[in-house]
C-alpha cells in the first residue's frame, strides 16, 4: 500500500479510465489540486485510502491538511482532479461519509443543548422539513453515552469544557452512522480523559469495519493511535502504513528543517521501532 514521493506511474491510459482506483476503496483522490486566491495549497494529490484503517494526516502548519479533507467533501472548490468514494461521486456517497470539523469552527455560544448538537448528525437521515423524532433523539443519546457524555445531554454547549465539546462533536459523528469519517484535529487542546475517549471511539470504529481519516498534529502519538499515515506538505510526501512510511527520512522531507519537530518525531520513531506499540 505504500507509495513514496512519486508513485510509480502506470502505462498511460485513456483519460476516462483510472484503473488503479477500485470501487473497494472508501476514498480515492486522483490528481487533486486546490488553490486559494490563485495560490495553490495542494498540488496534484493522489491517494487511495485502504478500507478499515485508522489514517493520520500529518504535516507542518499550512501544509493543507484541513484543506485536503474539505476538498474531498467539496467544502472548498477543487481546481482540478477527481475524488471518489467507493467508486462513486461524493453526491451519491454523502450519507456514508461523516465529518468532525475543527472545534473552533463553530460558535459555542449558540443557543442549543449538547443533545441538539448530536442530533444534527441525524439530520440527513431525518430529511428535509421533518422534525427530530423521539427515535432519532434516542439514537443521539446512545451516541453521547458512547463518549461518556450522556449526563450532559441537556447542558447548554457553552457550559461544557473544551474536551467535552470535542466529545459532543465526536458523538455527533457517531450519530451520522457513516462508513468513512473525516476528523479535523479532534485531539487539539483536549484533556487526557477526552483523548482517551477519542482513542477508544476510533478503535471501536475500526473494529466495526469503518475507515477514519484524522488530521493530527501530535507526531509522538501517530504510531500508537494510527495504522496508516499521510505525510503532507502541499503534496503527498509519502503515504502508507505507519511502519513503512513514518520514517525519519520522510518526516525530514515533510517538515524541512524544523528541528524541534524532527527530534520529537525521532523519539516517536524510536519508540515505535522498539516495539512499544
Amino acid at each position: 500500500m505504500s507509495s513514496v514521493v512519486h508513485p510509480p506511474q502506470p502505462a498511460p491510459v485513456g483519460l476516462s479510465e483510472r484503473p488503479e482506483h477500485s470501487a473497494e476503496s472508501p476514498l480515492s483522490i486522483h490528481a487533486m489540486t486546490v488553490a486559494y486566491h490563485r495560490k495553490p495549497v495542494l498540488w496534484d494529490v493522489d491517494y487511495d485510502a485502504p478500507a478499515n484503517r485508522l489514517v493520520a494526516i500529518v504535516g507542518p502548519n499550512g501544509a493543507g491538511k484541513s484543506t485536503l479533507i474539505k476538498a474531498c467533501m467539496g467544502l472548498v472548490p477543487r481546481a482540478s482532479g477527481q475524488v471518489e468514494f467507493w467508486g462513486e461521486s461524493y453526491r451519491k456517497a454523502r450519507s456514508r461519509v461523516g465529518y468532525v470539523p475543527q472545534r473552533e469552527s463553530v460558535d459555542w455560544d449558540f443557543p442549543v443543548s449538547a443533545l441538539d448538537v448530536v442530533c444534527m448528525g441525524r439530520y440527513r437521515r431525518i430529511g428535509w422539513c421533518r422534525p427530530v423524532s423521539r427515535k432519532h433523539k434516542d439514537a443521539a443519546l446512545a451516541c453521547m453515552d458512547r463518549v461518556g457524555m450522556a449526563g450532559y445531554a441537556n447542558r447548554q454547549i457553552s457550559q461544557l469544557s473544551g474536551g467535552q465539546q470535542q466529545r459532543v462533536f465526536l458523538a455527533r459523528a457517531l450519530a451520522q452512522e457513516a462508513d468513512l469519517y473525516f476528523m479535523d484535529e479532534p485531539f487539539a487542546g483536549v484533556d487526557a480523559a477526552t483523548e482517551h475517549a477519542i482513542v477508544e471511539v476510533l478503535r471501536a470504529l475500526k473494529n466495526s469495519g469503518k475507515t477514519v481519516i484524522v488530521v493530527h498534529h501530535d507526531l509522538q502519538t501517530v504510531p500508537e493511535y494510527f495504522d496508516d499515515v499521510i505525510l503532507l506538505n502541499m503534496r503527498v510526501v509519502a503515504s502508507g502504513s505507519v511502519r513503512e512510511v513514518f520514517t525519519k527520512d520522510n518526516l525530514h522531507k515533510t517538515y524541512g528543517g524544523r528541528l524541534t519537530l524532527l527530534s520529537e518525531a525521532a523519539e516517536a520513531i524510536a519508540r515505535a521501532s522498539a516495539g512499544e506499540v
Binding site: 470539523p101 463553530v106 422539513c129
Partner: peptide, 17 residues
C-alpha cells in the same frame, strides 16, 4: 432544523446535503 444547522455549523450542514 435546516436553518439551525446551517447557522450553527455550515460545513456539517453542507456535507449533509
Amino acid at each position: 432544523k435546516e436553518l439551525r444547522i446551517a447557522a450553527f455549523d455550515p460545513a456539517l450542514a453542507t456535507t449533509q446535503g
